[in-house]
Design a binder for these strands. Structure first.
Length: 883
DNA sequence: CTCATCACG
DNA sequence: ACGTACGTGATGAGC
């Protein structure tokens, strides 16, 4: 037996929107109406078990009802944008449900539904109509039940003719007459003024129809008679407007409604995108491992071993579409190579590590090393490093889906292949956590499970590549990808594998000195506190300072007293212990993070440390550095700066050469804002902070004292970060009013910068993203948030990201060029480190002169701006000396 | 595992 | 009026 379910899409999504509290996913997309709709839908599908389902939508603004009555639905509130944006989302979701949707130009959803219920009546098909609109009751019949949403949206009241009779004392068709008399404010249907539901029902019980009432006006009395007679026309027109049209041309389309249930995994993809976590659970999905097993059936896994036909394997590799190389563990310098999977036509070849390194793996090794053999994979940078530590060469990256995903959305934190595939609607990749476990349970499962997992990943990569290629092209980032990021990843892997020599004795010596001083501070602190406690514990320290010694509380954290350096500096005058704690903190940081931490990272055999640059983390396009982080080695304070003495060349007599961009971010700002004053300053290579001080304080160069320059420097930082008076006042310890004045003065002097700041925020609002000079993108959904905090943050980000990001683009370009030049010129000098605006090299003495010219030449010429780029070069026997 | 703190650009 | 400066990673404490 067939059963139809016909849903009034517009009506339900409206109800859901107003019934549900606001809800957004992490991308800032509003989802509350879709969520409400979905809960209702899941419930009704469960309860009704329909064989045919349709969601009907209104199409366009003008329907046949507007002919003759242009005010129809006039005066309606404009659909809020938070709701409008959910229509396409709902429509896409319905596709995942495999539920049909109709909309027809010139007709409303209720006309489509009305027509289908007529057909249902004719064919005797049991039908349920779902809507929030009482008008629908006119469609009720023996076959057709009307489900109207109650209060919320997931509960419905079902009406058949008997229940309508009971509730209103009317037959279904009389609902039209009811509306004709009482009108409908929400659709701007007038009816007869002064006639509400009560009066209308009374009249209809007596005269049955609008026509009946109008034919008997002489029976009415007083005011009522006057009103009815005066609004005869309105009543007739209102009835007409309320009448659902049941002759929409829909012949032979009922087959399209047939519904045989939804595909759980494709629905889960959609729910994941929308972040409907509770609904995913409700779906009761099969375990990911089962899904992976099921997908494995669509291609044949071939385990490569000694028996594998070698020539066949070579042919397959030559035609490989994608590869997944599993480097197990976070740090690719210490990872375990589990093996790899290669897709080729109908097959996935899985090669485990033992086979890869055996005679049978030779064709695979040759393929990996062949730069003419294109590899499309996931995180090939990591793979390349891991392979190289196992003595295996890797060349020929053609596409990396991780790197592409990063460019397409650099703010997405979860870039695992599992979630990446899910975002593109590619199911059946288990999460690494599900396969390998996490934390204490982290371990490699049996070979078969690994093979299945690697095969699934290689399969997902194959599917992702063409989708991302077109996404990159569509967003204008293909050049950035192919000409910058992808070549850079190869350069980075080279630098990482090379590493930098760190002299352990230097660090150990420094460590002994620190230890001695720390013990001294510790005894003094205990004495002044009158007790022993753990100075490293903010909790214990807070108790000592604010309870035992009763110092004033400056700031609180979520969990208690704040004891950070900013607070301690304010407390210094109150008690001599504070100064000691500040020193203790400073030295203890050096000891634990930089002496002990770095010592642990030195490879005993080579005396080198190997950082891991991550190219897909920072939202602005910068690199980040891990295991150890070599981008935050101390420099600002002399005690810490001494750590740099331990960073030395790896060959006797060689030198460390450092080259850093001078004021790259402000130069970038001068270029992209086009501000004439700022450009002039850089064209004449002025001291930018002094110049800013001159303009902000209205003085001449020789009147700028060190304090004015310091404040101007803070203003310049503020400008780059997306200025606010609060931030600046906080940084300079001045009043907000004074900070405001500085900012105003700055913008008066640099009008182009103000215009840039205003424009970039507007542009972000319009496009939803900002870009760097090389078209790197960052989406800022929160730029439209009504929450002041979120919105302000997005606005500052809109100002900062093009600046910081373009600076990142420039140094990345320089790195790729530099790598090329070193090769081309057969130089032995090596690029070792990047620290955002600085490159560090090790240089043989006979190349020093060449490099002193070449490095700044390449870096300054990386990109031509309206202002010159300037690079300072320094060298010495260690990193400390490059100042 | 999260928080507070602090190192860098 | 709203309450923050932008971007990272490592460490030790304490739940």
């Amino acid at each position: 037996m067939d059963k139809w379910m016909l849903i009034d899409g517009n009506s339900i999504i409206y109800r859901a929107f107003f019934a549900m509290p606001p809800l957004t996913n992490s991308a800032g997309l509003h989802t509350n109406a879709v969520f409400g709709f979905t809960t209702m839908l899941l419930k009704l599908l469960e309860e009704e078990k329909p064989t045919h389902v349709l969601v009907a939508f209104d199409a366009g603004k003008v329907t046949f009802r507007h002919e003759g009555y242009t005010e129809y639905k006039g005066g309606r509130q404009k659909t809020p944008p938070e709701l409008s944006e959910q229509f396409p989302v709902l429509k896409e979701l319905l596709q995942s449900f495999s539920i049909a949707q109709f909309e027809l130009a010139g007709y409303e959803a209720d006309d489509i539904i009305g027509t289908l219920t007529r057909m249902a009546d004719e064919q005797g098909v049991e039908t349920i109509v779902v809507s929030g609109d009482k008008d629908m009751l006119q469609l009720a019949s023996d076959q057709v039940t009307i489900a109207l949403t109650r209060k919320g949206v997931s509960e419905v009241d079902r009406y058949n003719p008997a229940e309508i009779q009971e509730r209103y004392g009317l037959k279904p068709l009389q609902i039209i007459d009811l509306k004709g008399l009482m009108g409908d404010a929400s659709d701007n249907i007038p009816g007869i003024p002064g006639v509400g539901e009560k009066t209308a029902l009374k009249l209809l019980h007596e005269y049955e129809t609008v026509e009946g009432v109008l034919a008997h006006t002489e029976d009415l009395k007083g005011k009522m008679k006057e009103k009815v007679e005066a609004h005869k026309e309105d009543a007739i027109m209102s009835k007409k407007l309320a009448t659902i049209y049941r002759e929409v041309p829909l012949e032979n389309q009922t087959d399209e409604l047939s519904y045989s249930g939804y595909d759980k995994s494709s629905l889960a993809q959609s729910f994941r995108k929308l972040e409907f976590k509770s609904l995913i659970e409700r779906l009761d999905l099969p375990e990911a491992a089962e899904a992976e097993g099921a997908a494995a059936a669509s291609y044949e896994i071939i385990m490569v071993d000694a028996d594998t036909d070698r020539s066949q394997l070579k042919v397959a590799l030559a035609q490989a579409e994608s590869v997944y190389i599993e480097a197990y563990g976070e740090n690719p310098h210490h990872s375990q190579l589990l093996g790899l999977a290669v897709t080729s036509g109908e097959h996935v070849y899985v090669v485990n590590y033992d086979v890869l390194t055996s005679e049978a793996g030779k064709p695979v090794r040759e393929w990996l090393a062949d730069d003419k053999a294109p590899k499309r994979g996931y995180d090939l940078h990591k793979a390349e490093l891991a392979l190289s530590w196992h003595g295996l060469a890797f060349c020929g990256t053609a596409f990396d889906v991780l790197l592409a995903a990063y460019l397409l959305d650099p703010t997405e934190a979860n870039q695992t292949l599992n979630s990446l595939a899910a975002r593109y609607g590619i199911p059946a990749v288990s999460s690494d956590e599900a396969v390998y476990g996490r934390g204490a349970k982290f371990k490699v499962p049996d070979a078969e499970a690994v093979a299945r997992h690697l095969a699934a990943k290689a399969g997902a990569v194959r599917q992702l590549v063409p989708l991302q290629e077109s996404d990159l092209a569509n967003s204008g980032m293909d050049k950035l990808y192919y000409e910058l990021e992808q070549p850079l990843s190869f350069v980075l892997a080279g630098m990482e594998k090379l590493g930098i020599s760190v002299n352990a004795e230097t660090l150990e010596e420094l460590g002994r000195e620190l230890e001695h001083k720390l013990v001294g501070y510790m005894t003094d602190i205990y004495r002044l506190a009158g007790m022993e406690f753990n100075i490293n514990s903010p909790k214990q320290l807070g108790e000592v300072l604010f309870e035992r010694l009763s110092l004033p509380v400056i700031k609180k954290t979520k969990t208690g007293y704040s004891t950070d350096a900013e607070v301690l500096e304010k407390l210094e005058p109150y008690h001599e212990i504070v100064r000691l704690i500040l020193h203790y903190r400073q030295l203890s940081k050096l000891q634990s993070t930089y002496v002990e931490g770095l010592l642990k990272e030195i490879r005993r055999d080579t005396g080198k440390v190997h950082t891991y640059y991550r190219q897909t983390i920072a939202a602005t396009g910068r690199l980040s550095s891990q295991f150890p982080n070599l981008q935050n080695i101390p420099i600002r304070l002399e005690e810490g700066r001494r750590i740099r003495k331990a960073f030395v060349p790896s060959e006797p007599d060689w030198l460390i050469l450092g080259a850093d961009y001078s004021q790259i971010e402000l130069r970038v700002l001068a270029h992209i804002s086009g501000d004439e004053n700022l450009k002039e300053a850089f064209i004449h290579d002025m001291d930018i902070h002094t110049k800013t001080a001159m303009d902000v304080f209205g003085v001449s160069a020789d009147e700028v004292d060190s304090n004015m320059r310091r404040q101007a420097k803070a203003v310049n930082f503020g400008i780059v970060y997306g200025i606010s008076d609060f931030g600046l006042s906080n940084n300079l310890n001045i009043t907000r009013k004074d900070a405001s004045r500085f900012i105003e003065q700055y913008f008066e002097a640099f009008k182009g910068v103000r215009a840039y700041m205003d424009n970039i925020v507007m542009q972000a609002r319009q496009d939803g993203y900002v870009t760097t000079l090389l078209e790197r993108r960052r989406y800022l959904p929160e730029i439209k948030a009504s929450n002041f905090n979120l919105r302000s943050f997005a606005e500052r980000t809109a100002m900062n990201t093009p600046i910081q990001g373009t600076a990142a683009d420039i140094i990345k370009l320089a790195m790729v060029r530099m790598d090329e030049e070193l090769r081309k010129r057969n130089l032995r000098s090596r690029m070792l480190l990047q620290v955002h605006d600085e490159l560090v090299f090790e240089v043989p003495p006979d190349e020093l002169d060449k490099m002193k010219t070449l490095v700044p030449q390449i870096m300054e010429g990386a990109l031509t701006l309206d202002v010159p780029l300037k690079v300072d070069v320094n060298y010495g026997v260690n990193w400390y000396e490059t100042k």
